[in-house]
Write a protein that binds this DNA or RNA. Sequence first.
DNA 1: GCAAAAGTGTTACCGGTACACCCATGC
DNA 2: GCATGGGTGTACCGGTAACACTTTTGC
Lengths: 248, 248
Amino acid sequence: MFSHKLVPNISVDCVIFGFDFEKLNVLLVDRELKDEKTGEILIKDYTLAGYHIYEDEELDAAAARILKDLTGLDNIFLEQFASFGQLDRVAGEKDQLWLKAIKKGFSERIVTVGYLALIDNTKVELHLKDRDVKWFPVSMVEEMDMAFDHKAIFYKAMEALQKKVKVEPIAFELLPDYFTLSQLQKLYEALLGASFDKRNFRKKVAQMHYVIPLKKKQKGVAHKPAQYYLFSREVYEKTRKGKISFII
Amino acid sequence: MFSHKLVPNISVDCVIFGFDFEKLNVLLVDRELKDEKTGEILIKDYTLAGYHIYEDEELDAAAARILKDLTGLDNIFLEQFASFGQLDRVAGEKDQLWLKAIKKGFSERIVTVGYLALIDNTKVELHLKDRDVKWFPVSMVEEMDMAFDHKAIFYKAMEALQKKVKVEPIAFELLPDYFTLSQLQKLYEALLGASFDKRNFRKKVAQMHYVIPLKKKQKGVAHKPAQYYLFSREVYEKTRKGKISFII
DNA sequence: GCAAAAGTGTTACCGGTACACCCATGC
DNA sequence: GCATGGGTGTACCGGTAACACTTTTGC
């Protein structure tokens, strides 16, 4: 399908978010380099999920490919949020060592297109075992050692996500098809780093006619079982408010 | 300063907006190609302001350079809004002809980073004379013939601008340092394609403590002279509302 | 029966919206 | 003095914010 000739100076990087009903997580890939002879560990840190694009591959397709490779998942929310081309983004000592070691002949000036991916955590757990890829709470990223400018890319992604979630119904991408209102509330709280009043939150949701209650209820929980809800994109598109205003 | 070696497959394109107190305009560059012998016009259309980046040039710097070349202006609001890498974005018949004619050896797969530029129209008029560059009302773009995927880029820029203006005080970038409230209102109306009630608009602005009335008044107008106002970014940064909420 | 989370209503306040007339200036 | 846009106040409504108790289930 692809030419399998990589573009040496253009890549995509995916910042993949997941929600475990408690906190927001990000999927990171181990990067490890050992000395060929001594076995000494030269590099041990984390990277975002990313790779160069193929010559005859669309940007979006490249991001989807990377996501599929890593998680086995298709049809994921995936959206460009920014591009990064700082001259020194690949200039770190470790990063230079790495680029030399992998011997792919990549350029020293690589522009990368950042993608935001939102995935339903419950769907992906199985696929990850034994891969050098793991979920980390977003709060932990600060103290982690990361490759290239991936920490900066991550922060930009967080920012973009927080902006977007206030204004578009993308939070649902992080939840399973059926979810409870408490889960939805916890998700918004995790995303925005705020906390909301339960009753007011529910009143607000009640006005979103595209969040639809189901007959189904929770089972096997040691408390009053919660009602399940469903997000209908179709209803959303039809009823989205055309309100034109500004809040600055 | 620069290596003057261009990166053959990475460019930036600036969508430059201006406001003439009546409507929103965009700055476009003439593209014309004549047959060397017959003088026949082979291509005649418009492009965004864009060019390839230099090998040792930051993306932001490249955008600023292009803007400076075209308008003579420095210190302009300039922000990335999206990147474009469709395989066929340079594949049009005219575009291929053009690329061949200019003989720069650019790649057939060019990824371009789109920048939004907002400029104060009153400052730029002088610099443009006799250049192959002109303001066009944004409403006119639809029916114009544009190079590459520049029409699509323009629409994305419009979208990004409209989203951003609702939520950040960037409209002021399109106005002179001193402006009247009617000018500000006209601008918001032009940007959002809506119309607002004058009194309500003014009440809203009155709550923005970073829009500060000056002693100065209009002069020489055939009606009650308007008060001038000033946008203070400093006050904005200090008083920006930390309100955490969402409207979807 | 107790622990744990689900679910529910009222009041007070504030911001948004709708709406019409007088004012200062140039010509 | 007239044409032109500048500038102002009030009443109603709807949305947001604050707040506490009852319900259903598993163990």
